[in-house]
């Protein structure tokens, strides 16, 4: 197993953990935490391919990770604001009780 495969396996496992948490937990903040873990797994993939890929001097994977970190910051801010707004409306942050849009 090469180092690149090791990194990819670690990030696959991190993605699976984040996905399992995001779809199984009931609390809205934990779903956001799961999404952050999945984003981090994708970033780890980018860095691994940048490090072990053919043209690391072009810095493309590196820059993609920097920009995706900025986007993750924006996403976390908006997501947590939504959680707070929902809590203020309904006095709950349990996702099973927020189901107005359920068909």
């Amino acid at each position: 197993m090469t180092a690149l495969q090791g990194c990819l396996l670690i990030s696959a496992l991190l993605f699976a953990i984040g996905f399992a948490g995001a779809v199984t937990r009931r609390h809205a903040i934990l779903v956001l935490i799961g999404i952050e873990l999945m984003l981090n797994a994708a970033n780890l993939n980018f860095i691994a391919f940048w490090r072990f890929g053919p043209h690391p001097e072009a810095l493309t994977g590196f820059m993609f990770v920097l920009f995706s970190m900025a986007l993750a910051g924006a996403e976390a801010a908006v997501g947590l604001a939504l959680v707070i707004a929902i809590y203020r409306h309904k006095k709950t942050s349990n996702l099973d009780e927020v189901k107005e849009l359920k068909g």
């Binding site: 699976a16 199984t24 072990f52």
Partner: peptide
């Protein structure tokens, strides 16, 4: 949910371990 994420990990791990697109040698540190 747990089953789906286990399936996702199995598929990803299988693809990583059997892919021919992954270079075998490690390049020097950039």
């Amino acid at each position: 949910g747990i089953a789906i994420s286990a399936m996702v990990f199995t598929l990803l791990g299988w693809a990583v371990l059997n892919s021919s697109a992954i270079p075998k040698e490690n390049p020097p540190a950039p």
